[in-house]
Each structure stands twice: as C-alpha cells, then as structure tokens.
Nucleic acid binder design. Structure first.
Lengths: 185, 185
DNA sequence: AAGTTTACACCGAACGATCGGTACAAATAA
DNA sequence: TTATTTGTACCGATCGTTCGGTGTAAACTT
C-alpha cells in the first residue's frame, strides 16, 4: 500500500517492487490488488491492457529512473570519476546494496515480447553508456566496449549471486571492484 | 519428448530443460505433461511430491551434473590450466554457449525453500571449488576467494545479459576472459 | 443558482480457463 | 498372479479478465 494510491505513478511503485521480487509469473492480480489496496477491477481502469500492460509500465518506470539517474550521467559532462561514483551510488540505492533483484533479470521470463524488447533496449543503452564513460576517461574504444559489457555482467551476476546466497557482499564487492578498476587504464 | 521416457532420469532431462527455460512459475503441469508425453497420473507416480518435488529433483540432477563435470575437476588433481579448460568446456556445453539460462538464476524465484537451499548450497560449492583451483595455481588465499566470486558472478551475469540481448557473445567473451586471466597472477 | 450531464476512480461479483493435484480402473510387465 | 505404470475423468482453488454499477466532483445548461 502506497502513499499516492489513485494515480498510475503511485501504483507503479508498488508494482515495480512486486514484479522485481517475484518475477512476472510469480505475481498474481490478487496479490497486486492487496498490495495496492485497489480492487482488481480498479486496476483494469488504470491498466486496460491487464497484467501485460502493468509489466510494460513497470519497465517504463525503471527506464525513466535509469534515464535520470544513470543514462543522463553516463552520457553527460563532467569528471569521469565523479560521474562513475554518481552512477554507482544510484545503483546501490536502487538495488538496496544487493537485496533487490533487477527487472532486467526477472521480467523477461514470463513477460511478453514487448517486455523482452524493453529489456533488450535498456541493456543496450546501459552498454553504450558505460562504454561512453570509459571512452571519455581516455580508454581505447575496443577496451571501453569490453569494460562496459563486463560491468553490466558484473551488476547482473552479482545480484543473482546475492539472491542465491542470501548475502549482499557479492554486489558490494562488485561495486568496490568497479570503483577501483573501471577507469584505470 | 525424450528418448528414455518412462524412467525418472529420462523425465528429468525434459524437466530441466523446461524449468531453466521458463522458471518454476512459468512451467505448468500441462506443459510438462505434453513435453514428456506422460499423463499427470504418471508424473505423480514418479514424483509423488508434485511440482515441488520435480523442482527439487531438477536441482539434484543439475547438482549431479556439476558434481561429475565441474566439482570433481575443480577439487581434483592435475595441471590447473587443464582443469580450468575442462570446466569451461563443460560449462559452454551445459549452457549451450549462452543460449540456455541457469537454474541457479531462474529457479529460486518461485521454487520453495528447499529449492532455494539447494541453490545456495550449489553456489557455495562452486565458490569453494573455483577458490581451490585458483589456490592450487599459486594464487594467494584472499585473491583466490575474490576470483572465485567474480567468476561465478561472471557466469551468471553473462547468461542474464545473453538472455536479455538475445546474443551469445557476452557468455563467450566471459569464457574467453576467464581463460585469459583466471590463473594469471 | 439550481439542475443536469460528463468524467473519473473505484468496487463486488462473476466469467471461462487453467492451475496443481487425486481417485480409480485398465493396461502392462514381472 | 502380483506389482508397477498409465489413461481418463474429475476435483476445488486460483488464474487473468470483464461486467454492471456506485459515489463524487467538476463542467455545462437553463
């Protein structure tokens, strides 16, 4: 149950939380109903497309969040080290130091083709963003591309391992490793 | 539909394929029934515990596979480089160069506590196995532990990214990186 | 100003379909 | 025969979804 109930945005905050905790198939409308405090019929008023539209909307919300906290920084101006630190802090906050899973990991399994397309798009944007950051720090293009890829892999993988082990240290270690070596030639 | 239908082992091969493709929640008994060619009654004859027992059995199968192709090599004798190569080849085969997801990633979401415990146990075994391999190659204990963790992270993460992008290159790149740098001091 | 209409957010109840699971008897193998 | 294995039919529960309708407050009419 959230502060701003009746608005789509308010509902979406709860939806994001549920979907990334249980995956698309793991979340039922009854569950959504009770977590938002809205009847199932009301949910269909805000999301006429049903569960599929809810999933797409959640992907959009996550995309918007990345846009303002990650993409804009990666693709913006300023000292590379400062930009990197800003992004890493944002990610630590978003994933709650590794306690929360990533929608890019859990959503594509049950989500429809639109969700999978959104996942792909976001991943590509993350890759080019990190590549750009590395490149702007004077790292050669091919190397920058490789670092971007292993950065995304490190984030996703550490979250998977955190979930499996029930520990946050893999994610935190990964963040530490990125701080140490992402920008060093 | 598999060669050895009516045996538990034969059924499990199909189950593993379904579960790791769709996750626990994404697989229905009807689907299992049609993919194995067995009626529900037959499935419940082999797995009296139902879907939950099927999931646990799949985890056991994956565990057994790891036991003979990975753990025994990581914890065994022989040239470290040879052992590493053997493990990586086995993983490339198991994940079909990145086309298939890992049960450690997709199962814990809907799977019960037993499945999650199995996931945790397998991950810990993988970690100590890789640590041991690194250690036996003369790498200091703390460093070996860190390498083991980032190796597991790299495997899981690259599979997630492969699934998201619809490409196998992240996984293949990761394998290449492990060959290049896992054993180098 | 008072009455009417429109628009919006919401809900209870029920839909058909499918879920995981079971009872039981026929078929098959030993 | 006896024991194992399977197909058919079925169960209650829950799935995602839709229907018909309520309450409320702003927007228009007169």
């Amino acid at each position: 149950m959230n502060g701003e109930r009746s608005t789509r945005e308010g509902i979406l905050v709860d939806l994001l939380e549920e979907f990334r905790a249980c995956g698309f198939d793991g979340v039922s409308l009854s569950r959504i109903s009770e977590v938002t405090g809205l009847g199932k019929a009301s949910l269909y008023h805000h999301f006429p497309g049903g569960k599929g539209e809810m999933a797409q909307a959640v992907m959009s919300l996550a995309g918007d969040w990345l846009e303002s906290h990650v993409f804009s920084v990666l693709e913006g101006q300023g000292e590379p080290a400062v930009r990197l630190e800003s992004v890493l802090l944002a990610l630590e906050d978003f994933y709650q130091q590794g306690r929360k899973s990533c929608v890019l990991d859990v959503m594509p399994l049950g989500g429809g083709p639109e969700v999978q397309a959104a996942v792909k798009q976001v991943m590509q944007r993350l890759l080019s963003g990190f590549e750009r950051l590395a490149h702007s720090a004077g790292i050669k293009k091919a190397d920058a591309k490789a670092r971007a890829e292993s950065t995304l892999i490190g984030i996703q993988g550490s979250l998977v391992v955190c979930r499996g082990l029930g520990s946050t240290s893999p994610f935190l270690n990964q963040m530490k490793a990125l701080r140490k070596s992402f920008l060093t030639p």
